[in-house]
Design a protein around this nucleic acid. Sequence first.
DNA 1: ACCCATTCCTTGCGTGCGCAACCTTTCCGG
DNA 2: CCGGAAAGGTTGCGCACGCAAGGAATGGGT
Lengths: 172, 172
Amino acid sequence: MRNLSGTLSPMAPTTALDHPILTAVGLFLEAHAGLTRTLEHQLDDECGLSHQWFEVLIRLARTPGERLRMSDLAAQTTLTPSGLTRAVDRLEAAGLVTREACPNDRRSAYAVLTDDGRARILDAVPKHLAAVAALMNGALSDDELVAFERIMRKLRDRMNPCAAATSTPSRG
Amino acid sequence: MRNLSGTLSPMAPTTALDHPILTAVGLFLEAHAGLTRTLEHQLDDECGLSHQWFEVLIRLARTPGERLRMSDLAAQTTLTPSGLTRAVDRLEAAGLVTREACPNDRRSAYAVLTDDGRARILDAVPKHLAAVAALMNGALSDDELVAFERIMRKLRDRMNPCAAATSTPSRG
DNA sequence: ACCCATTCCTTGCGTGCGCAACCTTTCCGG
DNA sequence: CCGGAAAGGTTGCGCACGCAAGGAATGGGT
């Protein structure tokens, strides 16, 4: 339990401006910014997809019927409902997804992958994967890579509990 | 070296849609989104600061003369030069920072913390720290916390090498 | 049968960002 | 001393997001 109170003493009276936990969070944010910046450019250059599009498409592609309710998609993509509406608008205009009515609940709408959308994401994934691999390769040891996923999963579950239930269907 | 090529075999021909590395990256992104969402709200509610403002102010406060060149600030805050210009515009309008000319190089401009700015960030840090601690507390073990910082530092250095030189002055 | 709370999605509005283009200043080679 | 390249910073433009409000549909209580 001296996790945050002992090791990181939250009430250093002098100045906590360089408190370890702030450093850790700062590093996290910088790593994220660098990663997304790089991946965004890679995806745009090689596949003509924004990272947001990629996230939506791959989640649809992973789902059995290649369809997902708007709100479920929103929960998984770290987008608000309104943001997702706009994103799906653009994806629909680009012909990569379609909206379909939900038979049981006429409030809901499905976002469904089109043939073009499937082709697009299946083409993009290997390229993206290679780019991520190139970016990460050598940065972490095997052990660290394992720890990374475990820690990220724990943090995700803590930070965004809604997504935990549906986001990683193929993994415990 | 079987980091990414062995363990994560980048060319599984079936479908790599749920490739471990994509899962890891996805978790990373979700964790980040949840964290920033929470912290953004906390900072806004309790301190009336956006996270971006907080980042700028704390970095200025950490610096010896409480001043930093615009471009250095941009490199540290994961903002582009243009984004930083706008941010400093708003901070200046709010009276929290001032622009000051650089005596040596008339192209450069310093962003300098004002008294109000210093008071604001010194008030915000403990609250923010407490919120982060509450959010993280119990999510990770001591070992994981240590690993987290080490991994994040490595990733940051890999993803955003420019920031590594100046971002954490008080730490190796 | 009715009504009210809730859920799901969509729009109006404002905000903040990145990119590319621009101007100024500095640097460096000739 | 001069001229082009590079660095530092600022703007025009467009885009994407979140919030709050709105409209349609569902469910539960009476």
